[in-house]
Design a protein around this nucleic acid. Structure first.
Lengths: 255, 255
DNA sequence: ATCATTTTTTGAATGACGTTCAAAATACGC
DNA sequence: GCGTATTTTGAACGTCATTCAAAAAATGAT
């Protein structure tokens, strides 16, 4: 019975088509003007067919967000696999997140919207489950790094569990992404180069956690150099001259 | 010509009525089922009258969020006025935020939604300006505390400006609020007592910034004790037996 | 108090969407 | 081919946000 499998494959392919198209439409016309009818029409299907895949518009958005998150997870895992001290690897996770934000800025915008109660509660259980499970690998990487750091004696656990120690950098990143995407807020408060600051504060936090080897120099230049090195070693495909320059510009090398 | 003033006063009073009513409706029926018609009807006005005050539904939501933020700012300022070291006061700001989250959980839900691009971009310029200006005092408090800490030699500035140093705790809080309100996420990852962890990580971060006097013991009990003391000294009206017990429960005193 | 004029309120009408579902089309197994 | 099961279709429905012409109320000069 290859029929079932073929159908399943075709169904999955069509779902990808819908999601790809939705992404393109959002990119070109914005999230506001995305309608189910437009997505369907752009794929030459009837509106009703969309509902074979997604229980609601919100469900589609969550599916799209989850798929984008896959790329984020991939970057994350590359960062985690980087050879270096546990501290360097933890730092690299944040850099991966910053690079991802540059590479796919629409992801955080969408994710922020989707995790809103009003949207989240209109999604299907299955899709929510998939969203949570999709980002589980990131958590596992964090847990593993913290575990090794504690085992190696580079990080005192203070009675906290692995993820409880990792939750600090996590929320720091998340909070900064949120600020960056709150339009006008950072410029109102004259906070330039937010991601540069984020990475400096990550270093501060890791120092405060007593994560060895401690970093003495947490200046913006030092952080920029570190990022520069990481980009060469781990993210060379993402940091061509152009984007690296842009990233460093935003990080703010000293004038 | 007192007529103009009276009218302005009545207009402002009606706006308050609309916002109060919207808040109650959200509290009882949820954000999803809030409609402009329902808000108007609940106040015995026609739908069109609402649009004399708010250029769109999103505009109303932003206005509501901004008004709620006023209470947050008030708590913040009380925390900042607390007598103690600059470090204690900085810590107190985060406690104020946690208390506010307990006292008014709907605020962060709403704020998260409102700061979403899809909503934010449908609001009026005036309202956006008001929202930004409304939270400015919080920023000023942070700046002032950092300024004094640096001046007193309790905090090395490392070439960073006042707010650049305060942005760490800020994003840490914001990120945790975001995680807390992403329904199911924290329980999925088995992160209990998020706000207890937040305050511990605030201490870690402040230590990492070299903010004197450094705190040796960043255990959950020590943090809980500190919060306990703050509640007695500064937030006694908010921390009756009940709510304090609940708060400490969530913060997680050692078992 | 009266009346012309301005301002405000009203709520039915409009249009845009998300969502549904009966009918039509297609695929499938025999 | 043919009967049946599955899938697709897109018009129809209901809900809302938003508008605006008409009605009502307020104003202020006489």
């Amino acid at each position: 019975m290859g029929t079932q499998e073929r159908k399943a494959r075709e169904f999955a392919a069509r779902e990808d088509l819908f999601l790809d198209t939705a992404r393109k439409l959002i990119l070109s016309d914005g999230l506001l003007s995305l309608t189910m009818a437009r997505v369907a029409a752009a794929c030459d299907y009837a509106t009703g067919t969309l509902y074979q895949h997604f229980s609601s518009k919100e469900d589609l958005l969550l599916a799209l967000s989850t798929r984008m998150a896959g790329d984020r997870v991939a970057l994350f895992c590359r960062a985690a696999a980087f050879e270096g001290t546990t501290r360097d690897r933890m730092f690299a996770l944040s850099v991966a997140d910053v690079l991802f934000a540059k590479q796919c800025p629409e992801h955080f915008r969408l994710a922020q919207y989707v995790f809103t109660e009003a949207v989240w509660s209109a999604t299907s259980d299955a899709r929510r489950q998939a969203a949570l499970e999709g980002s589980q690998p990131m958590c596992e990487e964090v847990r593993a790094i913290v575990r090794k750091a504690v085992a190696d004696g580079d990080l005192p656990d203070r009675g906290l569990r692995n993820l409880d120690l990792g939750v600090g950098p996590w929320t720091l990143c998340l909070g900064m992404h949120t600020l960056v995407h709150a339009d006008g807020l950072l410029s109102f408060y004259d906070v330039t180069r937010p991601y540069g600051l984020l990475l400096q504060h990550i270093e501060f936090l890791l120092n405060g956690l007593g994560w060895k080897p401690l970093v003495d120099d947490v200046s913006s230049t030092h952080v920029a150099d570190k990022v520069d090195r990481l980009c060469r070693d781990v993210f060379s495909d993402l940091c061509d001259h152009e984007s690296l320059a842009r990233l460093l510009g935003d990080l703010g090398t000293t004038p």
